[in-house]
Design a protein around this nucleic acid. Structure first.
Lengths: 372, 372
DNA sequence: CCACCGGCCTAGAGCGCTCTAGAATACTCT
DNA sequence: AGAGTATTCTAGAGCGCTCTAGGCCGGTGG
């Protein structure tokens, strides 16, 4: 017998102080739930097998739910597993299986749209038997770092939601594993893209505004944010297509409320259009707020449209009209695509373009003077 | 010789691969970065060992940066590793090491405060040689599920940021591994808590308002949200302490802007106080917005204070006065505590209480009639 | 000369799991 | 009956890594 003991001491080492703070933490109702609390480490397949009197392999079969065990044994093993509080060790599992069934996701923690998509990814991945590991991109944690973490976890595939990694790095990543970029076109030929057509979205928005009778429509863009360039270009194109007067009016904006607020000031100063289409909802809310503050009635004098249908605009009292991108659908499509890539099939088109939908609330109406 | 010392060298073990990843992980322009792309799977220790003509163990030693290899070999092995694009397999590593050096974090994706803390956790953990794995709590993904995922990853410790798991579950969890709950008192005796004192924060806020001359101060609470009960109670206590007239006025609110907006309506209907202290910034922004919409000047007629110092209130044009909780500090304290727990030491006090700070902006001022 | 170092390195046994072979038993089918 | 075919189960070889024990060196000191 080797000397395993050297391993053990670590875990139980904190036990001693628990009692010190509480007399006797016997709050566990069913003592059966922790039948082997003594052994510092969690129960393994081996433990379950021993207790159930079967082989490790059989337990593995039962736990994984694959065929190969009789109903009776299955029940018995499951019973023992539960009794011991057994939970498979993901790491070992992945190691042994040779594949991880892990989908890595990079995202920005503070973007509501990302949260929405992430939730969708969890749901979609789990229903395909995949797990999800999140890696956050923050101010101090560069996208590159987030991606490396994903690699260290040996993800089989990745979904990139965060601010883009550099083209070069993305291309390298995509050569190692299937990658789907959500929400923005990618310049790396090896990566798949699932996104909602910005051209369609902007088109829908302009159709709506023009349909209401607006002719003087400005766009507050997203600066260098994801998709901003596309939306800006689409705005210009739609502006032309609808035969609106003059040059398309595009103001420098950004992805935050403050950007919208600044643009509102600018608009008031330079002359109000009858409608404003913002880069995203936060930006639109900034416009809304500043207009409100400065006494410009919305939609009385100016109509405002957002983009993304994020929670900030959904608030009933704000009633922001917007263009909705179905985050859950994006997510599930992205996952599907990854799964089929992993299965070896190569989708015909690298880019999947979804159609957005209009969400009309109270921030848009006919222009002040009524329909011309 | 027993075994203890063998464990120590671990700490520096992250150092070695930090350099390896920082210098040129990203934009390897040299084709040498993909010398064996053909092999399909990523290179292993074995591959590096073979190529370098040494044993697996030696490579392991070098990669981990522990003593036991000559400088010459070290350089050579490092060279080969880089050439092959070797990255250690986290799963195998942790499996073999018997410990994961993983800190699990549950959080809500849509809470700006959580993002802030998460960022701090990343920073703090990485500087201690720990990795972080995030598990999101969403509408469809219950806290319990998030925690289970963490367990499956065999985290050594957990930080709970999300909506609370049930007392019972928390207690059980905390008995299995060190747990720190951030931001709210916990009723599970086994879990540590790191939080900012709500009593102090509310105290600071009331001191400020009373100092300005306010006497009629209402509180819009957070309903059943984290910390809401504490803040409510603190408000009542401070109200008494300052000898303010009448019963403390507490309105039912919630954690969202819509809750604040609803409360604003209510306040206008029932009679305005001279100042309102909201449960959090989002709620305060809702108040701000609705007051603005309904023509109640802030801070002209009513002063409004938030709590949390989240980005929504920071916007210059909103200028929300608030109480700041230092997320990064909370994070780093939580990590420190976890690390020392893992090292076997038991901190004297289970709860670490920080002091909040006042952030004064433009939403608070002397009451309408001036100082009484 | 033989211990007896200490520095560098390797062999080999796991970590907890999956998976391929194949053994053992039970159930057809001619 | 004997062969064929399931069905249920087990042995054992890894997955990529860490870590203990020990081997092999050249250099000291008795």
């Amino acid at each position: 017998m080797p000397k395993a003991p050297s391993r053990l001491p670590k875990a139980p080492s904190r036990l001693p102080d628990a009692p010190s703070s509480t007399p006797k933490p016997s709050s566990l109702p069913k003592p059966s739930s922790l039948p082997k609390p003594s052994s510092g480490r969690p129960p393994t397949l081996e433990d379950v097998a021993a207790r159930a009197g079967v082989s490790r392999a059989l337990v593995s079969i039962v736990i994984r739910g694959v065929p190969g065990a009789s109903e009776a044994t299955r029940q018995r093993v499951l019973g023992v597993a539960e009794e011991l509080g057994y939970r498979p060790d993901g790491r070992a599992r992945l190691l042994a299986a040779g594949r991880s069934r892990l989908i890595g996701v990079t995202l920005a923690l503070d973007d509501p749209f990302h949260s929405d998509v992430a939730e969708g990814i969890y749901a979609a991945a789990e229903s395909c038997g995949y797990q999800v590991v999140l890696s956050a991109v923050t101010e101090r944690r560069r996208p590159q770092r987030a991606v490396e973490t994903l690699l260290d976890y040996r993800c089989e595939a990745a979904i990139l939601l965060g601010p883009l990694v550099a083209r070069q790095a993305l291309q390298e990543l995509a050569q190692r594993l299937p990658v789907v970029v959500i929400g923005q076109p990618s310049n790396a030929p090896a990566a798949d893209v699932v996104r909602v057509s910005d051209a369609d979205g902007i088109g829908l928005a302009l159709d709506h505004l023009v349909g209401l009778g607006h002719r003087l429509i400005a766009h507050v863009d997203g600066g260098r944010s994801a998709g901003a360039a596309q939306r800006r270009a689409a705005f210009r194109a739609e502006h032309r297509r609808h035969g609106l007067p003059g040059q398309p009016r595009v103001l420098a904006g950004g992805p935050g409320e403050e950007d919208g607020a600044a643009a509102a000031r600018q608009l008031i100063e330079d002359g109000l259009p009858s409608a404003v289409l913002a880069y995203n909802d936060a930006c639109a809310v900034g416009l809304l707020d500043m207009f409100l503050r400065l006494g410009v009635p919305v939609p009385g004098q100016v109509s405002v449209m957002g983009y993304d249908d994020s929670p900030v605009g959904r608030l009933s009292y704000r009633g922001l009209s917007t263009v909705s991108q179905d985050g859950h659908q994006l997510a599930s499509l992205a996952v599907q695509r990854l799964v089929s890539r992993l299965a070896g099939s190569a989708p015909a088109n690298r880019e999947l373009l979804l159609r957005p939908a209009l969400v009309l609330r109270a921030s848009t109406a006919e222009p002040a003077g009524g329909r011309p």
